[in-house]
Design a protein around this nucleic acid. Structure first.
Ligand SMILES: [Zn+2]
Ligand SMILES: [Zn+2]
Length: 157
DNA sequence: TTTGACGACCTG
DNA sequence: CAGGTCGTCAAA
């Protein structure tokens, strides 16, 4: 009973940095790339290039090659019933389609050498309606990735 | 410490 | 449903 539900802490899967996709370079044409400050974007998305989607995202500690077969654990935060109709899940690899759009670029700018997403933020962080910001409060499942799941038992360091 | 990226959330 | 956004985690 108890209160602990699962023992497996699902850490955030990070890219392996090994597969071609990881070593590939940004296409510079996908929406994510365009959003990168590096590409003259606002840098609000904070996502990786669509073409750089790692095919073997590893989990923090141990590596887990994903040769073929990948049914990543996710889809756990359904407020109502079936959010992902087409199911493809909105989390693991939602970035699938690209938008064929050609926009003429013209001037390259590098206004801020260092100091990106973190630190220094211009613009009221309220994109949602007033009064109801992120109410759901992190997936319907407490624990897991919240603010810990990994900081377990460590009195003093 | 910094940058990058995941994962989840909201709005249209 | 898709697109866009934000917070947090994780690696270098
Ligand atoms: Zn790209
Ligand atoms: Zn990879």
């Amino acid at each position: 009973m108890s209160g602990k539900g699962l023992g497996a802490a699902r850490r955030r899967r990070t890219r392996c940095r090994k597969c071609e996709a990881c070593v590939r370079t940004e296409c510079g044409e996908c929406n994510f790339c365009k959003d990168m400050k590096k590409f003259g974007g606002p840098g609000r998305m904070k996502q990786s290039c669509l073409k750089r989607q790692c095919t073997a995202v590893s989990s923090g500690g141990s590596l887990r090659g994903a040769p073929s077969g990948g049914q990543p654990p996710s889809c756990n935060t359904f407020p109502s019933a079936a959010r992902p109709a087409a199911h493809g899940c909105l989390s693991p690899l939602r970035r699938r389609r690209e938008g064929g759009h050609r926009s003429g670029r013209g001037a390259e700018v590098q206004p801020v050498p260092h100091g990106m997403y973190h630190l220094q933020r211009d613009r009221p962080p309220r994109m949602y309606q007033d009064g109801k910001s992120r109410s759901q409060h992190r997936h319907g499942n407490p624990q897991l990735l919240g603010v810990s799941a990994l900081r377990e038992g460590r009195p003093h360091l």
